[in-house]
Design a protein around this nucleic acid. Structure first.
Length: 446
DNA sequence: CGACTTTGACCGGCGC
DNA sequence: GCGCCGGTCAAAGTCG
């Protein structure tokens, strides 16, 4: 009986062993298959990376070519900056170089559409408007020196009358400079967009027409920094965060903030230089409507950022995914003026894939589009920039998926090339992004 | 304890 | 002149 049992047991053991072997074999096979898959994906990723690098280099080459052409124009005497002009006491890192001719055209463009606007009145205003990033590394820019002089410590002009000690002329032009606004629409899970700056919330309001509260932040990098931003969810798509920047940083910016600052600067320049993409159009009277519907492009998520301040030149960078994006693929809105007939410019960084954005902004640490852990502390958020954020967002959506959505990458590249070559203002936006990326790459290499 | 957020009050602009 | 509304202030509360 024992023998039999023993035999049976051995047989069972044998069977178990063979089963185990079979299972192990299956595991090995599946692991091998898995590895093969991973290898293939790795190869595809490499190919994609090469393609991206190629595209990037091609864009960079174009940028360099254009930059060389533009810089030769700038060096010419008629375009040189008058160093004695106090308007240029602050060196603006204006990446969108604008020629004299185009400036004058711009003035016509703006004034012809702003009959009630007293904000944009002079050529000087026009030359200076924008969220220009003052270049702290420039020889001409000495922040501490200016501070000591007590002349240029810029303060936000509130209704309660915080005033600078500048002359009236300066005040007017500075006001105009500060008044340029850049509105950024982006999908964002966090309460505020992580743009690298430190912000302090100083107010919150429920604005009419939007149940979502509008939050008011001021830059706390420097106590005297006049830059403010408003943050509000889009009423029609709560996943879209509308951030409106206003003012000019008067202090050196952290690297993580330069991408955003450069781009808002370039966008403001674009707005104020009267982009060739601008289109005059009469919009519906409803401020919260979708003025671009059936006009420039379908824009169901459009939200007019700040109805009370429509006198301010405002440019909107649409960084959201929008399947209804028109053939150009770019929509940027400029909505500026007090009266209803507005000038609306369209350009967006939308592609068929919103996650393209971290690749554009990533190294600059511009945004964190992934679902970063929420923190009320913006300063803490600002530490979560860069590759970690990128990886995080990539993990949320497999990298390959993004490129499987048609030939978006190729189309985007082609569209970029067309737009860049045809529109000098848009070029400035790209230049800003590229130069920021390049700068950050250099920093990373050090 | 300092930095930050919250929130009601206040102010000024604007339309009627 | 009045009321509405957006923007800001500032005291109180919260957090690390």
């Amino acid at each position: 009986m024992e023998d039999v049992m023993g035999f049976k047991v051995d047989e069972e053991k044998l069977n178990n062993n063979s089963e185990k072997d079979a299972i192990k074999g299956d595991e090995v096979e599946s692991t091998k298959a898995e590895m093969t898959g991973v290898k293939e994906e790795n190869t595809r990723l490499k190919t994609l990376l090469q393609q991206i690098e190629k595209d990037y280099k091609s864009l960079q080459m174009r940028f360099l070519d254009i930059y060389k052409q533009e810089s030769t124009k700038i060096v010419s005497p008629e375009n040189s900056i008058d160093v004695n002009d106090q308007e240029h006491e602050l060196v603006s890192l204006r990446l969108g170089t604008v020629t004299e001719t185009s400036k004058k055209e711009d003035i016509v463009h703006v004034t012809s559409t702003t009959s009630n606007s007293s904000k944009i009145t002079s050529e000087n205003d026009e030359l200076k408007l924008g969220l220009d990033l003052k270049n702290p590394s420039s020889d001409s820019y000495n922040y501490s020196g200016r501070k000591e002089d007590g002349l240029e410590v810029e303060k936000w002009e509130t209704n309660k009358g915080l005033k600078t000690e500048r002359s009236a002329d300066e005040e007017i032009s500075q006001t105009s400079a500060k008044r340029a606004r850049v509105c950024v629409r982006a999908r964002c899970d966090t309460p505020t967009m992580n743009d690298g700056c430190q912000w302090r919330k100083y107010g919150q309001k429920i604005a009419k027409g939007n149940p979502c509260p509008r939050a008011y932040y001021r830059c706390t990098v420097s106590p005297s920094c006049p830059v403010r931003k408003q943050v509000q969810r889009c009423v029609e798509d709560m996943s879209i965060l509308i951030t409106t920047y206003e003012g000019t940083h008067n202090h050196p910016l952290p690297n993580s903030a330069t991408a955003m600052a450069s781009t808002t600067s370039a966008a403001a320049s674009m707005l104020l230089s009267g982009s060739s993409t601008s289109t005059s159009t009469t919009t519906p009277t409803g401020l919260y409507g979708s003025p671009f519907q059936n006009t420039l492009r379908t824009q169901p998520n459009y939200y007019y950022p700040n109805p009370s301040s429509t006198a301010l030149p405002t440019i909107t960078l649409d960084l959201t995914t929008n399947p209804t994006t028109t053939a150009t693929g770019f929509g940027l809105y400029s909505s500026s003026f007090q009266t209803t007939p507005r000038v609306q410019t369209s350009l967006s960084f939308s592609s068929t894939d919103s996650n393209m954005l971290p690749t554009v902004w990533g190294n600059g640490g511009g945004f964190s589009y992934g679902a970063l852990p929420y923190s009320n502390n913006n300063h803490q958020n600002s530490l979560q920039f860069g590759k970690a954020a990128q990886e995080h967002s990539y993990n949320q959506q497999p990298y390959l998926e993004k490129f499987n959505q048609g030939s978006s990458q190729q189309a985007l590249t082609e569209t970029l090339t067309k737009v860049i070559t045809s529109d000098p203002s848009f070029r400035s936006v790209i230049e800003a992004a590229i130069s920021s990326m390049a700068a950050n790459n250099r920093d990373a290499e050090k």
